[in-house]
Design a protein around this nucleic acid. Sequence first.
DNA 1: CGGTACGTTGAGTCATATCAACCATAGTGG
DNA 2: CCACTATGGTTGATATGACTCAACGTACCG
Lengths: 235, 235
Amino acid sequence: MKEEDSFPICDKCAPESGSIFRYLNPAELELLNYRKDFRKFRRGSVLYREGSRISGFYCVHSGVIKVYKTGFDGKEQIIRFAKTGDIIAYRSVLSSEAACTTAKVIADSRVCFIPADILISFIKSNPVFAHELLKLACHELGEANTFITDIAQKTVRERLAEILLYLVRDFGLDDNDYLRISLTREEIANIIGTATESVIRLLSEFKNDGFVELQGRRIRILDTRALENISNLLV
Amino acid sequence: MKEEDSFPICDKCAPESGSIFRYLNPAELELLNYRKDFRKFRRGSVLYREGSRISGFYCVHSGVIKVYKTGFDGKEQIIRFAKTGDIIAYRSVLSSEAACTTAKVIADSRVCFIPADILISFIKSNPVFAHELLKLACHELGEANTFITDIAQKTVRERLAEILLYLVRDFGLDDNDYLRISLTREEIANIIGTATESVIRLLSEFKNDGFVELQGRRIRILDTRALENISNLLV
DNA sequence: CGGTACGTTGAGTCATATCAACCATAGTGG
DNA sequence: CCACTATGGTTGATATGACTCAACGTACCG
């Protein structure tokens, strides 16, 4: 059996990936392993679509998934990225609402699909798990609020610098200081809420100023300090 | 004892106001009534400030409170309003983070302050309550995501029309179709993320087009349909 | 080798921010 | 009672950041 085909066992992968399931007890983990469904998705495939009813949620084992909303004119607004250990679609499952986002694979992914009912049952049976899930949701809410403020008040230039720093924080840099996530210019634009051309212009401005280096889609971060200054990040 | 001074009992006011506490059992409600602290605040007073550690959260009995973040240049970004039955600051309590917002009274308010530990204990003892709290947080998260998309993609004009409709939905109209919430132009600007002058200009544009009528701070909604068209609201 | 998706650059336009001046109202204190 | 002040509202002029449109370059892929 090739490594890629190995079926992940959550009582092993949960603590390693730091996922929310590390708060489950052995019996619950066993149930999770029994009920979950392991799936693979290639770049570009869609896990679920805005407006659809979802019968469960996903835990990301590997890969990167973008979660976005589609605006009035069809333009996508990226809300967040999910990577190893993150769960997605839990919001819709818990609030009993239709999905308010679409999830599309950016880097080939392996995920577990978990039926909605056992999430609910874990909440009922395991108060610590419920509390941690609440912490997770509340933390995301805090981040959303910060993002609202930024997008409402900052210039595109400031937001671009900020997003680059967030990507460094969340995905890290390789040995040559290249960002470990590969996004199209359009995707970057759809995070910070601007036009693709604006991202291109500002990125090459950053390049000319010596803050970054560009090799096609790869972005090398040369001067974090300068980006921090531009972004006017509080904290 | 004047009506205004009467101490609200949550097992009465919770079901009436539709607050989250309607999911507590009698014993828990008794504990809540015993531990909570009833407080009154005048317009302009601050319940808690961004960055502070909070030892509990608030349930609004009457009045209106604005919850906002302060941006880099000191400009406030209003995140939401809390009115009768709403709870605020629960996010910070649950995520064990410092407050990421400030809460300031817009219309004289009566609130209950509830110590953090009993919120945690309710989550542990009452799975239904925990689930409902999760629903609440997840619902707010969904609204935040929608707002991010709007603010990133819509014009100021569209956002202004949209916010007027939201205010109608959340606060209603009186017998003469006046909005039941009174905001300064600056506050409206701080919701939709624009300059005060822009709000003034667009509002008087709406007035000239016959969509609204303006009497100082009071806004009369004349043509909901037109506002819906302008706002490009999905739904 | 054509096709498709992505990246880049330039030119022109427009929505919105900024700056400045002025008015209206209400509360305050002498 | 009247200046005095503070706060909020309004309007106009001006500046500019960012978007749109359009053309073209590049790279990979079947």
